[in-house]
Design a protein around this nucleic acid. Structure first.
Lengths: 328, 328
DNA sequence: CTGAAAGCGCTTACAG
DNA sequence: CTGAAAGCGCTTACAG
């Protein structure tokens, strides 16, 4: 590809001058400007960002690490991040760390090698060695829709409180026999806190929680199906379920209806995430929201603030909200 | 951040030697190797890929440009691309070109400046100036789930033929009064060809197409709702509909059921895309598939092949397939 | 087995 | 208004 050297040769000026006009630095004659710009256009010149970045030691790249999970909110997080990144002239480089974050350390290393100026890690849990690795990084890292034991800044919803509110919403709508479907009990971030919130809401209202009403899973559609089948066969059948994801909620709802139950008359269902399928379900799904686009956008805003100021990033708990539709 | 120079100073060897051991080039003593590796670990060294890329004039980056559309298949395309990219030690840098590809030219320029070695553009239509710009690029470009008038290579399904098969499937299942919902009629790639395929299937079977049975839209859920309301009020009401996306299909299905029609008994519905919501709908949606993950994966495979061999990329029409579920 | 040196394509003081 | 030169952090022939 052509370089500023080529343009310099074509126009008879130095590469310094070429660089100046291409960067609109001012301090050259109108005539020079035209000559250079024409030459650049003529040979189809594109500045070599890598070279410029190397010189300036600033690549204006933000890294994004996501799990390999075919989730519906995937795109929203990416768009939130990319939108504010590009608005600030940052590019984003994306990588996947496997379902369980197996090669998360490699991903982080790759980002460091690419000299990202900031890194966001979305929706994954970190083990000790990764936390250690991150602590030694020289650029800011922010977690989105997840958090870590240590002081790595994060942006997320308060899962326990969101689960509490979801359960509470069901109670306020007259339900007392409420089950929870789909939580992964070995997930400290999105699993356990949601069942804790659920339990707390039940206890606060003096309601009993039958052990069978807690049906664990993997946040998936299939988890919802399995949970609903189990609930249906219970002697003491719940009349409402808090599903820990929208996917799970649809599994529950569909199964319930196929079993002859009416939603919400015989069984109320509330979901979690408020992805686009919530409004596309039938009946439309009432759900607690995680604002994914906003999480991504905010993460990058804070990151850029940190890059510019040199200050630390503050964690932030984003507000959740219940979107009322027709499933309760 | 530390550089090889720091390691050289620490260990008393030259930067050349440091570079060699860090790249496992061989040709140094075991003792040197250990010294260098220990020093690197100690100071938390990460190679500066930008510098290395500049020197080698190869950044091992692939660019991806996508529309700003909150679609369900978004993640699948990205994952397909990133999976085979990372397997080949390429990173992927992603950018959004707006709903209508407004700033597509800027995105392409940005990718050129970042010195990507290949570029995939997904699901967007290109105007003349962008096509011109692409033609002058020195790295391969491949289109995914779209195509252009010119000879830019693409990977996609044959929309007309897929639409033909979808309509045909409905006919084979005993339907004769078939409508089409949701196509954007000014979309030359995903809109028009699908209505052409639909029309051709109808004609081939000697079936009439009432003008009102073609209800245009924007491939959205809402388009499906609007279409179904319109169909419902027709004197000559269709008994099956081919929806041009899964989203549209859900809009049609939900509306039909809310209007008191049974799916598939009173109204059969077939979708297009076969995204994850197809199996999560109730009844589960029968749909023609676009293999998004595969499209992305194949695009990068071909691209890397082209980068390595210097040959052109061949366009490829991927097979579509009908996933039979319960909505027909 | 190791090092000095050139060079990738830029930017930016410094000097005039 | 313009240029010569240094330098960003690497890699890699070349020489020993």
């Amino acid at each position: 590809m052509p370089t500023i050297k080529d343009i310099a040769t074509m126009t008879g000026v130095s590469i310094a001058t070429v660089s100046r006009v291409l960067n609109n630095q001012g301090g050259y004659s109108e005539e020079t400007r035209e000559k250079v710009e024409n030459a650049a256009r003529e040979i189809n010149y594109y500045r070599n960002e890598m070279a410029a970045s190397l010189k300036k030691s600033s690549a204006r790249i933000i890294g994004l690490i996501m799990p390999n999970a075919p989730t519906l909110f995937y795109g929203d997080i990416v768009e939130g991040i990319e939108t504010v990144a590009s608005r600030n002239n940052y590019s984003v480089i994306i990588t996947h760390a496997g379902q369980d974050g197996t090669n998360l350390m490699d991903c982080v290393s790759l980002m460091a090698e690419r000299r990202v100026e900031g890194l966001v890690i979305a929706s994954m849990s970190l083990n000790k060695s990764v936390e250690e690795q991150i602590k030694n990084l020289t650029f800011p890292v922010v977690l989105v829709s997840t958090c870590a034991g240590t002081d790595i800044p994060f942006i997320k919803v308060d899962d326990e409180s969101a689960a509490y509110d979801a359960t509470n919403y069901l109670i306020e709508h007259g339900h007392q026999e409420i089950a929870i479907a789909g939580p992964n009990l070995s997930d400290q971030i999105a699993g356990l806190p949601r069942v804790t919130g659920y339990r707390r809401a039940m206890t606060d209202h003096g309601l009993v929680v039958e052990p069978e009403w807690i049906h664990p899973g993997t946040f998936s559609f299939d988890s919802g199906i399995a949970a609903m089948h189990a609930f249906y066969n219970l002697a003491h059948r719940p009349d409402a379920v808090f599903a820990v994801s929208d996917d799970t909620a649809l599994g529950v709802m569909n199964t319930a209806m196929n079993l002859g139950l009416r939603v919400p008359e015989d069984l109320a269902v509330i979901g979690y995430d408020n992805t686009r399928i919530a409004s596309m379900a039938n009946p439309a799904l009432t759900a607690v929201s995680q604002p994914f686009f906003e999480m991504g956008a905010k993460a990058v805003q804070k990151m850029i603030g940190a890059i510019d100021s040199g200050r630390e990033i503050d964690s932030e708990i984003l507000h959740h909200r219940i979107f009322e539709r027709r499933s309760v």
